[in-house]
Design a protein around this nucleic acid. Structure first.
Length: 619
DNA sequence: AAATACACA
DNA sequence: GGTGTGTATTT
């Protein structure tokens, strides 16, 4: 092979073997293989994040000029500071007062809040943490808009939303397409290739990086020469095909970011490298203390050692927490370079499971894939910290209702995109003072109209459970969450799941026999104990307009008053509507997924009050 | 089912 | 540094 690896490796003299995979030999087989995944030597990953995202969202919402200094405040503190505002020395640590002192013409926007009595979040005067609840909805919406632009611009790129303002993009496929388009001779193995498809590729072309972004320097010399716009060729560096791939990736990212800017008005920064970890790391190249934003950085493999070695490892994702602390303490060091002398054996001894992963990370290796997480959320949380702890249980109910209202709205919105979204469980967390928070959870029914009442009812029940063995109520934080959110599968399978959950905790739905065309519902029927008296029919049953059958409450409690019966009936009506909804879905679509192989669970549940009555259970 | 850890604006 | 979210792992 005529690879110039010697000169490149020479630069890392001390520990060259630590970075021995920076210039792998790339063959025709590599180029032509489609599914090499994380071992693809031409892998190109980008991390794109929005600059001062919350501040940018408010700036766009208010149609302000990008140069205005703007901050987003939450009560008296700041949660986002635009880059123009940072020029005044404002940081997120500042209180709003100090920020305004530093910049008198600062635009300060308080984050939207739910206010008691108001159905939707808004931007009110005189927000007060005692009466209002923060809403981050705008940012979630804008975030998903950005993701959509990514998808639309890069139909072949794999996209993983990493946080509200960040996404990883696997550019390997779109890059390969462009590469073959531009260098068609790579697509066919030459007749005279010594090892056929396993022969190395011919030498790559030189790259003009001018418009593609900031190149992370290869060496200290490179760092100064870069400022003079000297070409890399002169410093004895030789381009690799992976560099070419990176440069095409940079081209694509520049396009994507331009689209985001044009369509939505957000500036973004990006990092482009051979894996997720490095992409993320280099996205913030020189960002912390400078105002340089709206740009992308490119980390060539050969630049990895020089870039990584002086890096404080606790800044690396996943090493910011306890693990990073432990490493720092154990070896009394701070930067990546210091840890390179630790052998894998030794690390495994001290850190077990995590060792290999960390060992590789320090050497610029990261085998994690970019996995499309379908923007669909797995959980949805609404939470409220209470500066003045609550002591009255009624206040608990109040906040739960507020949180429930938010969840109801958010779920409704989410269902506009994916109508079958179904939170399987509901969880209530509560924290007392400085104690760690305690939680209770319960299954959440499949319901088409998830109303505030249904959520609040469930939340209140959990609240009671949580408070029952508590002597003094002084709650400082309340969190209500949906977890296990999934798109219910349509088709027979859904009907199946629908009934299964019913069976577990609801009385069976009453259906007329004439409608009983579904083999799944055998045995579901004919257990209405004693039909109510004629004159009471309207209080305990109703006739469905769709199937014209009379649906009755199964077990009417004598102690229920009229109001309770009405509620129970309303819920039964909803359940029945849900049944039709589920049936419509099943009928309207072809089964997409194969039947799950999960066995139908046969557990039985006894102590719970059944069905609707559980919502009325006292204590 | 409940608690803990980590990340990020 | 505090509040509000989210995910994944451990107990």
């Amino acid at each position: 092979m005529n690879s110039p690896s010697k000169s490149a490796k020479g630069k890392g003299k001390t520990m060259s073997q630590d970075y021995d995979d920076l210039r792998p030999i790339i063959t025709y087989r590599h180029i032509l293989s489609q599914n090499l995944g994380v071992r693809d030597p031409l892998r190109v990953i980008a991390l794109c994040d929005s600059d001062a995202f919350y501040a940018a969202c408010e700036r766009v919402r208010l149609a302000l000029d990008p140069t205005v200094p703007i901050v987003v405040q939450q009560w008296e503190s700041l949660i986002a500071v635009s880059y123009p505002a940072r020029k005044y020395g404002i940081s997120r640590m500042d209180k709003i007062k100090d920020a305004k002192k530093k910049c008198p013409n600062l635009v300060a926007v308080h984050v939207a809040t739910y206010k008691e009595g108001e159905k939707e979040p808004g931007y009110w005067d005189n927000v007060d943490t005692r009466t209002h609840k923060v809403s981050l909805d705008l940012y979630r919406r804008e975030s998903s808009k950005i993701i959509n632009v990514f998808k639309q611009t890069l139909p072949n790129g794999e996209i993983e939303k990493a946080s509200i303002d960040e996404a990883f993009i696997d550019l390997t496929r779109p890059v390969r397409e462009k590469l073959l388009e531009r260098y068609p001779h790579l697509a066919t193995v030459p007749e005279d290739a010594p090892d056929g498809a396993d022969s190395p590729l011919p030498p790559p072309p030189l790259i003009n990086w001018d418009q593609l972004g900031v190149l992370i320097p290869l060496t200290p010399q490179d760092e100064v020469s870069a400022q003079d716009e000297l070409s890399n060729v002169e410093s004895g560096y030789s381009t690799t095909w992976h560099d070419v791939a990176l440069s095409i990736g940079a081209e694509l990212m520049a396009q994507v970011r331009e689209e985001v800017s044009k369509q939505l008005g957000y500036t973004t920064s990006a990092g482009i490298a051979r894996n997720k970890f490095l992409a993320k790391l280099c996205a913030s190249y020189k960002k912390p203390n400078s105002q340089v934003i709206d740009r992308q950085s490119i980390l060539r493999n050969d630049a990895i050692p020089y870039y990584l070695r002086p890096m404080p490892f606790q800044k690396i994702r996943f090493l910011g927490g306890k693990l990073g602390d432990a490493l720092a303490k154990e070896y009394d060091v701070l930067i990546v370079g210091d840890l390179l002398t630790i052998s894998l054996d030794e690390m495994q001894h001290k850190f077990g499971e995590n060792a290999l992963w960390v060992y590789e990370l320090l050497r610029g290796i990261d085998r994690n894939e970019v996995k499309e997480k379908s923007t669909l959320f797995k959980s949805m949380l609404a939470s409220k910290n209470l500066p003045k702890p609550i002591t009255d249980p009624a206040d608990g109910q109040h906040w739960i209702r507020v949180l429930a209202a938010e969840l109801a709205l958010r779920l409704k919105d989410a269902r506009e995109e994916v109508p079958t979204l179904w939170p399987k469980t509901i969880v209530l967390h509560a924290r007392k003072g400085y104690e760690t928070s305690r939680s209770k959870q319960a299954a959440f029914p499949f319901t088409k109209n998830v109303t505030v009442d249904v959520i609040a009812l469930a939340g209140n029940k959990l609240w009671k459970e949580l408070m029952k063995d508590v002597t003094s109520i002084n709650i400082t934080s309340v969190q209500l969450a949906f977890t296990g959110i999934e798109a219910a599968e349509t088709g027979q399978q859904m009907i199946h799941g629908f009934f299964k959950t019913r069976d577990a905790q609801h009385p069976p739905l009453k259906r007329p026999r004439s409608n009983s065309d579904d083999p799944l519902d055998k045995g579901v029927e004919s257990e209405t104990p004693n039909p109510p008296e004629r004159q009471e029919l309207s209080l305990t049953s109703f006739v469905c307009e769709r199937c014209h059958s009379r649906i009755a409450l199964g077990d009417v409690r004598a102690e229920w008053n009229e109001e309770q019966r009405a509620s129970a009936l309303a819920m039964l009506r909803q359940e029945h509507e849900d049944f039709h909804f589920a049936q419509d879905l099943a009928g309207a679509s072809h089964p997409i997924k194969p039947r799950s192989s999960k066995p139908v669970s046969t557990r039985s549940r006894e102590p719970e009050p059944k069905g609707i009555t559980k919502f009325f259970s006292k204590k």
